[in-house]
Design a protein around this nucleic acid. Structure first.
Lengths: 229, 229
DNA sequence: TATTATATCATTTTATACAATATTCGTCCA
DNA sequence: TGGACGAATATTGTATAAAATGATATAATA
């Protein structure tokens, strides 16, 4: 074991209790363990972490800021839900932000960046677990955006990705989204290789738009089924 | 007076203590009463509101989510500062978000919307107080975006506007930004009147870009002065 | 029976008290 | 003199307890 491993462990341990709790809850929401609309009982969470309710409340506040939970005065927090309308809106925002990121990044991309992106794509091809698949997906995008060097932009992109990802994960695991997604990823990467900024922007926009449309269509069909039964 | 008026009043009064504290602190940061880098002592704030530190901490967490304060573990919260680099970045993000908003809104704008926008511009002309000036400024933009009906987008725009506004306010009160800003506003409104979406987007982008550039130039000059002395 | 009032319980919210961590300031020693 | 060490102090972070609020069930009334 290297020193850096110990260091990262220490950092992980260090981060305040609320941050730790927030991270765990975020992951749980993302994985669908905590479903939309579900009540988040403070003392229940507190017990499971072996702490009092105060750090739990602060964690919930942070998640509220990220849009993953909603606070109702004196009624506590619930896992937020997104209507299909809202999912569409979040994707529109993502398109605006991420096309900006890639536009700034393409001229700065190094060969190493491109190789790393290719490598991630190959990993994605081999991956079967949806959670890990989604993570790698994010890494691929992040790799292509990174040279833009826009920390605030990246953080915004991340928050919004997280918000729709929990819905996308349901869809991905059910339907045949993976192949199409990978084909689109390769089109984006190809454009980046050619230093074709315009093309990369276009390909990325289409990628996000197709994800949005497929997801919304899928969810709306599900709603119809729910109404019928 | 209708029942709904009373209800909305009650709701305003009701809002949780942390929300109230957050609002006051936000306004204080915006007005420059709390300057960037300033330590926010929980005890002090708690005393001035006549509450314990717990609602104060939750208010600070909310503001941290909005980017107005920064939490350092065991060292409390400080009012965040933005480097000129970061200000540039926030403005880039605003351009992406707000051009999207106006693009969606222009086709939906009613005559009432346009009249309301014009009315706000006239109010701005008469206004001398910088704080109120800035508020009206926001209202003008919001009026033109509103028909887009994108609540998440609006909230994002608002957060980012708030973040750079405290710097813009300093600049505005010192320099002759007001006339230029109003001229640009009128160009935007004219394009909206002509239902010239493209033109409105262009005018808005130029408006934000000029604000960003002027502001950054001003701040960098200030830094030079600070270094020299 | 339907509606309102009341009481009970669960839960959130806040205050107080304590623990952990940073900061300050004085002391010591090279 | 100046830097290192270590109490003393200030401040943050968390646990516990009390207060406030909302939900639920039951009784009272029209």
């Amino acid at each position: 074991m290297h020193l850096s491993d110990l260091a990262s462990l220490a950092v992980q341990r260090y981060r305040t209790t609320p941050a730790l709790i927030a991270e765990v809850l975020r992951e749980a929401i993302l994985r669908g363990i905590l479903e939309g609309g579900m009540q988040l009982r403070q003392d229940e969470i507190a017990k499971s972490f072996g702490v009092s309710r105060i750090p739990v409340r602060e964690a919930l506040r942070q998640l509220a800021g990220e849009g993953l939970v909603e606070f109702k005065p004196h009624r506590g927090a619930i896992v937020s839900t997104l209507s299909t309308e809202e999912i569409r809106e979040i994707y529109e925002i993502r398109i605006a932000l991420e096309t900006m990121a890639i536009q700034l990044a393409v001229p700065q991309l190094t060969e190493e960046d491109l190789a790393r992106a290719e490598q991630i794509l190959e990993e994605i091809d081999r991956e079967t677990d949806t959670g890990r698949w989604s993570e790698l997906n994010g890494e691929f995008h992040a790799t292509l955006y990174a040279p833009a060097k826009r920390p605030h932009l990246f953080s915004l992109i991340n928050t919004h990705r997280t918000n729709v990802d929990r819905y996308l994960r349901i869809y991905i695991s059910v339907m045949k989204r993976k192949q199409r997604s990978q084909a689109e990823h390769r089109r984006i990467l190809e454009a980046c290789r050619r230093r074709d900024t315009e093309g990369a922007v276009k390909a990325l926009e289409e990628h996000l738009r197709s994800a949005s449309e497929q997801l919304v269509t899928y969810l709306e069909k599900g709603q119809e089924r729910a109404v019928k039964s």
